[in-house]
Simulated assay, not measured.
Amino acid sequence: RALAPMRMGSSPEGEEGALEKAQAAAKGVYDFVFQPISISLPCAIGWWVFGSFITTAAIAFSLFTIQFGDPRVQPNIVASSEELGNYQKVEEETVLFREILADVQAAYVDPVDSERFFETGVKAMLGSLDPYTEFENNKESEDLDIMTYGRYGGVGLTIGSDTKYDAAKNTIVRDDSRFLVVGALEGYAWDAGLRTGDHIVGIDGQQIKGKKLKEITDMLRGPPGTDVSVSFDRDGVKGEQSTVLHRKLVEIPNVPLARLIGDPKDANGYIMLKSFASESGKEVKNAIRQLKAQAPNKRLNSVILDLRGNPGGLLTAAVDVAEAFLDPAAPVVSTMGRTAAAPSLAYSASREGPLIPKDTKVIVLTSGSTASAAEIVAGAIQ
C-alpha cells in the first residue's frame, strides 16, 4: 500500500498530533493481503515542488508471506517511536539504492537494463535470508497462479523435447532442437488435427528452432478466445503442415489418476496427486468416495497416495488433503511468526472426521522431488 509522504518536524497540531498521523500512515504500511508464496514490494514515491526546490521521498517495504487463507488481514498496529525510526532508516537506504542505480545508468560503459538490475539486487537481498524466500517478477507470478489455481488459457497440447541417436555414445539422447507433441486433448488441439508424435516447427509464422521449451509453451498460451497458428511436421507425410488452434480455458487436474489396482475384490485404491492447488482437497476426497463406491462392501482395504514428484503448493490445500486421512481436529502443521501482522498459527483437521477409517491401510509414496505441501501431508499422515 502507498504510504502518504510526511513532513518531519514541527506541526500545528503539536507532537501528539504529528505522532497520531505518523501512526495512521504506518498502519497503512502494515495493511496487506496474504498471497501464495509471493513477495510484495510496494513502493510509494511522493514529489513536492516548492519554487525551484524538489524534495523526493521514497519508501519501500518487503513483506514476505505464505498464503494462509483468503480473508484480508487488517491488523490494528500502532507504530512506536522505534518503528518510525526504522521507517526513516529504510527510506534513507531506498534513496541510496535509487542513487546507485541512477549513477550506474549514467556512467557505466554499457547500457544497463534497470529492471534486470533491480531484480538481481532484490534476489540477492532475499537470498541472504534463506533458500526459500524469493522474488517473483510478473511472468513468474503468472506461472505461480497457473500452478495455484490449475487454470490457464491454452490449446490443450503437451510438448517435450525430441530424442535422437548419438552414434559416438551409442545411445539415445535428448534433442532440444526439435519439439514433440506428447499429448493432444480432445476438444482442443486434437480437434484442430494435431496428434501425438507430430513435431512443432513454427508458431504464428515464427520458426522455433533454437528456442527453449518454456518459450514455446509461453507462445502457445494466451487469453481464452484468441487464436494461434502452428506449423508442424508429421512422420510419413511429405511437407510442412499448419493449423489454427483456438485457445480455451484449460483446467489442470490435480488428481490425474484414481483407480482400484489389482483384483477389485481386494479393494486396494490408488490416488495420484500431482499438485496442491485450490481444488486439490476436493479432488482427493471425491476420488476416495469414488473408490469406496467401486469396492466390495463399499470399504477399502488400503489406499496408496502417490506424492512422488509433487512439488507442493498451497498450505491450505495441504490441510484439506490431510484431513481426509486424519482424526477430527488432529494437528496438521503449524507456522511461526513474530509480529501481530504475521502471527504463529496452528492448522488442524476438520471435526467432520476422516474419509478413511482407521482399519484401512494407508501407504504414502514419496521421492526426492516431493516437497513443500506434499511433505506436510506425508508427515501429518505418518
Rank of each mutant, 00 (worst) to 15 (best):
G85D: 13
G85N: 14
G85R: 14
N86I: 15
N86L: 15
Y87L: 15
Y87C: 12
Y87V: 14
Q88T: 14
K89P: 03
K89C: 14
V90R: 09
V90M: 15
E91F: 06
E91H: 08
E92L: 11
E93G: 02
E93P: 02
T94V: 15
T94D: 08
F97A: 15
R98L: 14
R98H: 07
I100V: 09
I100C: 08
I100Y: 08
A102K: 06
A102W: 00
D103I: 02
D103S: 05
D103V: 02
Q105A: 11
Q105R: 11
A106H: 06
A107H: 06
Y108L: 04
D110P: 02
D110I: 04
D110F: 15
P111V: 14
P111M: 11
V112I: 15
V112W: 10
D113Y: 02
S114Y: 05
E115Q: 14
E115C: 09
R116D: 12
F117C: 11
F117H: 13
F118K: 04
F118R: 02
F118Q: 03
T120Y: 09
T120G: 14
G121K: 11
G121M: 12
V122L: 15
V122A: 08
K123S: 15
G127C: 14
G127H: 14
S128L: 12
S128N: 07
L129H: 04
D130Q: 05
D130Y: 05
P131Q: 01
P131K: 03
T133G: 04
F135T: 02
F135L: 10
N137V: 02
N137K: 01
N138T: 15
N138C: 13
K139Y: 13
K139Q: 14
E140T: 01
S141V: 07
D143F: 12
L144Y: 09
D145Y: 12
I146W: 06
T148D: 09
G150C: 02
G150F: 02
G150P: 08
R151M: 00
R151L: 01
Y152K: 00
G153E: 04
G154S: 13
V155E: 04
L157Y: 07
L157C: 09
L157S: 06
T158M: 10
T158D: 11
G160H: 03
G160S: 10
S161D: 09
D162H: 12
D162T: 04
D162V: 03
D162E: 13
D162R: 03
T163M: 07
T163H: 07
K164I: 00
Y165H: 05
D166P: 01
D166V: 00
A168W: 00
K169N: 02
